[in-house]
């Protein structure tokens, strides 16, 4: 049985009479990467802030490493590393000095950890450059290094890949996966970059208007993402007619660009191709496709793409 790292029970947070979180109950288990998905204002950051002790729940409780109660939570937070909203960095200090500051703050005697982490996040060559002169991506990397300095068991990262270049995104993804696999660190990560989150997380928590919409594993998500045959042709009306009369299916959807998504015959692409050809339909594209995490999220919460 997996160790429970974080457990919230009926967590509600109200700001001026408005629920930012409502009756939220989740369990985070050791060694997993949890992707926290939600629109702006869904309550992702509020949840992270409550776990980190930067705010207090209106009702409900938080359990960290099996402990609950204010004093115990405070003690257990020593096992936590986090970067919420913006990295905790002092602008007039260099990257190394920033790490030194946080190392002293945590009472870590090992000074080698500063260079190790700088190398880990690719900031070894920043020298005497002050953090205020860093690019957004460099600040994010430094923030991640700060969060990792105490070798935490739970890492909370709010939008950690914001501002990173494509290579940086891949590096951070690999870094997080490595931390999870090698050190069994549990990671709670929020991001608006859903394709990236799809490649990073092992579990997903979909949050909408302060409530949990769904929690699912990567395997479950893959199962939930609707797979289909994407068919493009010159005569979509005729194609639809053939699907209904010859293939006897209405399980399809005509897309705005006139292509058709067919949700049946997923394993019989050749058969579909033959039937269409025999009925005089010239197919320009016939491929197996699947919904992305983004599609799935939108289908779940409905509405716009303000993820």
């Amino acid at each position: 049985m997996s160790t429970c790292i974080v457990k919230t029970d009926g967590l509600t947070k109200t700001y001026h009479g408005v629920n930012a979180l409502h009756n939220l109950s989740i369990t985070l288990e050791a060694g997993k990467i949890y992707g926290l998905i939600g629109q702006n204002g869904a309550g992702k950051t509020t949840l992270m802030r409550l776990i980190a002790g930067l705010g207090f729940p209106t009702t409900g409780s938080i359990q960290l490493f099996g402990h609950t109660g204010e004093r115990a939570l405070q003690n257990e937070r020593k096992r936590l590393g986090c970067m919420i909203e913006y990295p905790s960095i002092v602008p007039n200090l260099t990257a190394k000095e920033n790490l030194k500051l946080h190392r002293i703050m945590r009472g870590i005697p090992n000074i080698d950890v500063e260079d190790e982490l700088l190398a880990f996040v690719g900031l070894s060559d920043t020298g005497k450059k002050k953090a205020k002169d860093f690019s957004l991506g460099m600040k994010q990397r430094l923030g991640i290094a700060v969060a990792l300095i105490s070798n935490p068991e739970l890492l909370i990262l709010d939008e950690p890949i914001n501002g990173l270049d494509p290579l940086g995104v891949v590096e951070i993804r690999n870094l997080l996966k490595r931390l999870c696999e090698e050190r069994q660190i549990t990671i709670l990560i929020s991001s608006h970059n859903l394709p990236e989150l799809y490649q990073t997380a092992t579990d997903y928590i979909i949050i909408h208007k302060g409530e949990i919409k769904q929690t699912l594993t990567l395997t479950q998500l893959e199962g939930c993402c609707k797979h289909h045959l994407l068919i493009s042709c010159e005569l979509p009306e005729q194609l639809v007619s053939v699907l209904e009369t010859q293939l006897h299916t209405t399980n399809y959807k005509v897309m705005p660009n006139k292509s058709v998504e067919l949700y049946d015959y997923l394993d019989s692409k050749e058969h579909v191709s033959n039937v269409l050809y025999e009925n005089g339909i010239i197919v320009t594209n016939l491929t197996n496709e699947g919904d992305t995490l983004e599609d799935y999220f939108i289908s779940l919460v409905g509405g716009g793409r303000n993820v």
Binding site: G53, Q74, N75, E76, R77, K78, C82, I84
Partner: peptide, 14 residues
């Protein structure tokens, strides 16, 4: 502003 106080609290200081 630079979130040092946030960090101090988030790592378990009262």
């Amino acid at each position: 502003d630079n979130k040092t106080i946030h960090d101090a609290i988030a790592i378990g200081n009262s």
